[in-house]
Design a protein around this nucleic acid. Structure first.
Lengths: 139, 139
DNA sequence: ATTAAAATTGTAATCATTACAAACTTGAAG
DNA sequence: CTTCAAGTTTGTAATGATTACAATTTTAAT
């Protein structure tokens, strides 16, 4: 599936900017911030505005074509993979890694928890990632 | 346990400001923002500075005497209850509710997940809370 | 009392995000 | 083709939470 199909599938009218941003999300699994998306695309689309990046990412999230991660208190991160999975934030390198969802499968299907209507599940883990731990042990 | 004991237990030297802020966290289960803590205390401690509230809450979190919740992209919230539990953010009223931790108990004790050293677990749920759903159904 | 370290304060800066209005595109209708 | 309105993009300016920093105050030991 390409970016064009992905957008139309989620009811988003495609445009050059929207396709470029969706394309970026679909090919990079780095959970970028809005600024990182902007920086990556502003060379190929010189007229791109940061406002457009913010607006577009917000649109994707509203249409559920992307996830907004609040794992990091400094910046919001975005994820083009909307399947149920968890995230790990490394305190050292700041990267966000994917983890399999380890909650009870039943819970993920539940619409209600303790009387509250659940629409989104976010499982975040923080610590030192594998790569940073290994780099440290090398001395 | 009072605020004084709680602070010393976590290796934090008590002061009027620190005790007031810890006392507030220990008696309010609203997961306040730094600003809410400041607003609640600035009447009784008229000289209180917002910087002190930010510094003190950060100190509590560093000493693991409080949790920093990044469930809301607008504001960081704080929680004086450091036991393992989950949180629910209501999209309507904006309140953060406590939920029991529903992950596998085994996982909570694991230090490693997929090679990453886990130091913090945050399980966040978002949707419409019980109170807001009921209020809506009354018409 | 003295004094150095620690804590608090107020102001100013930072910086991610949003508001807003102008400019541009698009696509349908004539 | 034009025209026009709706939707999209853009740049600039504002917002608002958080932090930096330097000055002041407090603490606790000598």
């Amino acid at each position: 599936m390409n970016a064009y199909e992905r957008l139309t599938e989620y009811g988003i009218k495609p445009s050059v900017q929207r396709m470029a941003i969706m394309e970026y999300l679909m090919t990079h699994f780095t959970h970028p911030t809005a600024d990182e998306v902007y920086m990556a695309l502003c060379d190929t689309i010189p007229t791109l505005s940061k406002t457009t990046v913010y607006n577009t990412l917000k649109l994707f999230v509203d249409q559920q074509a992307a996830l907004m991660l609040t794992i990091d208190e400094k910046n919001v991160h975005f994820d083009g993979d909307t399947s149920l999975h968890s995230h790990f934030l490394c305190r050292k390198c700041g990267r966000v890694h994917d983890l399999p969802y380890s909650g009870k499968k039943r819970e993920a299907r539940e619409l209600m928890i303790e009387g509250h209507a659940v629409e989104e599940i976010h499982h975040y883990y923080k610590g030192i990632c594998k790569e940073c731990s290994e780099a440290e042990n090398e001395n």
